[in-house]
Design a protein around this nucleic acid. Structure first.
Lengths: 159, 159
DNA sequence: GAAGATTGAGGGCTCAATCTTT
DNA sequence: AAAGATTGAGCCCTCAATCTTC
């Protein structure tokens, strides 16, 4: 790797950080503006809707939305209070607890999805060619897999 | 844009979010492990070091590290207490205030840089080909510029 | 005693209000 | 009264401790 290439690497990393910050702020703003919906709530709705039986264990939900179990626990509480989800104990294992999407939640998702999708289409994919998109997809998959495969900073250790 | 392409778009966006979370956690961890240095501190050191006279106005520093003015104000306080930076009033404008890199700060940066650079090289650029890196660089630049150019969610409005 | 989940405590970050200088 | 910066209030998030069930 030449010196220029290394500079491109650091520069790209910096761009990655700034772009992430800008885009997340953007989408959060539009989602809140249009639907009064925090981004993490949207993510939870999305994952629950995609899951078998529209329900997920707390831990699994946390993994998918990239939030700690404790945060998920509180968010599901709030969403339950708002009627978008409800809790259900796991009949097979008394320790486990499910978050289940309600009809209200489902309709909130269908209501919010166009806003979010439009944001992505406008600010992200809209600025990229099909080829770029495909390359980024493959590249990010590789990076993510590597970061996940290696010894990892223990996020919320077992006990 | 075909249906598959749109799916790739959303999937890539999702990967973007997950990869960002994983990588930042990674680098933060290694930097803290090796040098007891929070990532925002590293960023501040970096920007101050790169700046004219190794000093920057609070507002400008905030822009560069993607942090609010208030956060920067507090971080510079902490870093001053740790001896890595100091404050200086702007002689030309009594309202303004500079953050200035100290020798200690400079040496802390030189100490920490290899750790950070190594992390980027290992987890990010190391997983990408030169071509991919170049494409990502150009693509992100375009996305960021567009997100910045458009009416924007007012981050900390003027007054 | 380990696993799933929740609760308590605390840090990071932003917004709004305030203070100072122009 | 506007601009630069700091302070006060409060949300979001995680870690550690705790409770319950296996």
């Amino acid at each position: 790797m030449t010196r220029e290439d290394r500079d491109v690497g650091v520069a790209t990393w910096a761009l990655f950080l700034r772009t992430h910050a800008a885009l997340v702020a953007r989408l959060e703003h539009e989602l809140d503006e249009a639907r009064r919906l925090p981004l993490p709530w949207y993510d939870v709705l999305l994952e629950l809707n995609a899951a078998q039986g529209r329900r997920l264990r707390m831990q699994e939900l946390g993994n998918r939305v990239v939030l700690s179990r404790s945060r998920v626990s509180r968010i599901v509480d709030e969403m339950a209070r708002a009627g978008l989800a409800r809790r259900e104990p796991d009949p097979a294992d008394g320790r486990g607890s499910y978050a289940v999407l309600t009809d209200t939640g489902r309709s909130a998702l269908h209501d919010a999805a166009p806003v979010y999708l439009h944001g992505i289409a406008t600010y992200f994919t809209g600025q990229l060619s099909d080829a770029e998109l495909q390359i980024m997809h493959d590249a990010l998959r590789r990076v993510l897999e590597y970061a996940g495969s290696t010894p990892a900073p223990p996020k919320q250790p077992s006990g």
